[in-house]
Write a protein that binds this DNA or RNA. Structure first.
Lengths: 335, 335
DNA sequence: AAGATTTATGCAAACGTTTGCAATTTGTTT
DNA sequence: AAACAAATTGCAAACGTTTGCATAAATCTT
């Protein structure tokens, strides 16, 4: 770094014009003659100039920043390490960049009660994307009705005053279960936590499919982590033996936990037990047997989340939206 | 939201004091009488007041924001989905929060050449944490010597003018290999890309261990993804048959790719081939067989990264640092 | 009890942009 | 060529904090 930081005024002096002109030129304002704009933009590039965002945010009252909050329930172990959550964050980041926005990441602020205030009132960000409804929707509802620009990744069918974007979890649960039934499974376990918003929908889908097939539902309610799944299936096997021949797991990580418990007892997947997961994380394809799963279109969902947030910031009213979902058929359910 | 946004001046009027007093009180400045401070802080809380960060950043020239850049090589497929990279980001976020800093996430800006300028000159962030050296260190070097406050997660033994924090990759490679040798493996493959900074160190460790044991090294050079590993091992098996009895994989994801190829051919792990990965991601524990791996202490590393960045911002000169590393012994290498 | 300290508060000038309005230049019409 | 319209630029006032310095109030000193 040669000299100290240039400001707009310095650049203006260098070019022999006013700061207003430079400001407008750099923002490509058509008020300024094209020729002047080009010249000034080149000059800026040459001197490695960039606007002071603090000043410009102060003046415009806009930040072009979106806060992304990973909303983990305090009482679950589903952690920041969950590959699916992190995948979503990655996708959201790309989507935001596409719109010229930046991503302020937060995973611990949801706990403090005034998170909305913290981000919005303080003008740290223009809006908030919450990843995951968890069990505590009241929290979000309060912020939304207080006027905080807010969109949520979660279950779009949850009634809410804020827009929720997410997969058709009901359909996902149904598809997975029907697929297991079609592959000859009769006693299908639902493995997950039906108290959790998104998962309760998957559970509904599971139940409907089971009932239509006149089969018997059986829910193993566990915390949504692989280790809880491992323990849960293990315990079930110990207590009741192999009393099932299919598992609909509420996430891929949960499915892997179950898979481990089964493999350890030499129970064949998919022959003895057929297995379908949810999320279609990278690992699903690389595990052995590969894991059939319900694929959520996170990429599309991320773009929609951002669009809805922008629309909301522009004063439009926005609705929840379902994004398509797809069964990816792999070895774990094939027979 | 009832009325429009409060500012410092409004709060001051409400309390019947000057804005200076309120400002100082909210920043817990000892110039202000304790009693007054308490009173004003309560008032602020009551009215849900928070400072406009744009204004305060403009005035103080500090943002308390750190930009985190995920540095992916353009030509590798090691993607934003790599669980390990994302895990690190999560840990860094926690570490930053601990110091009262915020995290601005970026995974696509490394491509544009003036990223440092973009973040620092524009006062979007006070400093930068780059996750991963990739193959393009020149890029970072240039920024660092231009005076950009910068720390890197990578291989600390790489000579550099900027501080690098990371695991003892050489030792990791050595430990993994020695462990395989101790478990009776004679022909151990190194699976990974020795052109990559961190991995080249692991490779060195591998080589030294192999040579000391008077064994023969064999490198399968692949892109560091599970699918490349899968294909690589598959191809090797097709062309030369089972010509090895141990694999040191340069990451867990790579190990899983290899594992799949082996399992598909009913090659037993660990009996026919012993396997050790690197990173110790969550999946290592839940796979079957569970994957032995070299565990990187990402939590500690993250704190150190932040501390070093802060020290650098305070004008101190900082050095690269190695964080401890540990072999986690699981089924995939046990015999 | 009056001066000398110490403690607590207020004044006002920055920080670097953006933008409504006024002023200037250029082009168009009669 | 004068009068008008359109295009281009500049002036100056915000945006909401923080902080050096000056001032006022309280405490101490002799």
């Amino acid at each position: 770094m040669n000299d100290r930081k240039l400001k707009l005024a310095d650049l203006a002096k260098l070019a022999g014009v006013s700061t207003s002109t430079v400001s407008r030129a750099l923002n490509d304002n058509p008020l300024i003659k094209q020729e002047t704009r080009d010249k000034l933009q080149q000059l800026a590039k040459k001197h490695n100039f960039s606007l002071n965002t603090a000043a410009s945010r102060l003046r415009t009252q806009k930040t072009n920043v979106v806060a992304v909050i990973i909303n983990l329930d305090g009482d679950t172990e589903q952690s920041i390490n969950d590959p699916f959550l992190l995948k979503i964050v990655g996708e959201i980041n790309l989507a935001l960049n596409k719109f010229g926005l930046e991503l302020l990441l937060s995973n611990s602020f949801m706990a403090s009660d005034d998170w909305a205030n913290y981000f919005i009132n303080s003008r740290r960000a223009d809006g908030i994307i919450v990843v995951g409804q968890g069990k505590s929707q009241a929290n979000i509802e309060a912020a939304a009705s207080a006027g905080v620009p807010l969109v949520v990744w979660g279950d779009p069918k949850t009634p809410s005053s804020y827009p929720i974007v997410g997969s058709d979890n009901y359909l996902g649960g149904r598809l997975a279960t029907e697929h297991l039934l079609a592959n000859g499974a009769k006693n299908i376990l639902f493995l997950g936590d039906p108290g959790h918003a998104e998962i309760s929908e998957r559970h509904r889908g599971y139940l409907d499919a089971i009932n239509e097939a006149k089969a018997t539902p059986h829910v193993v309610s566990i915390d949504i982590t692989s280790s809880a799944a491992y323990k849960g299936i293990n315990q079930l096997l110990v207590e009741k033996g192999l009393c099932f021949d299919g598992i609909m797991a509420c996430s891929d990580m949960v499915a892997f936990g179950a898979m481990k418990a089964l493999k350890e007892r030499y129970i064949s997947i998919p022959n003895d037990v057929a297995l379908v997961g949810f999320d279609d994380i990278a690992m699903a394809d690389i595990s052995h047997p590969s894991l059939s799963s319900i694929k959520q279109n996170t990429q599309r969902a991320s773009v929609i989340l951002v669009e809805k947030l922008l629309a909301q910031l522009a004063g439009q009213s926005v609705e929840s939206q379902v994004v398509e979902i797809e069964l990816v058929n792999r070895q774990s359910s094939q027979r």
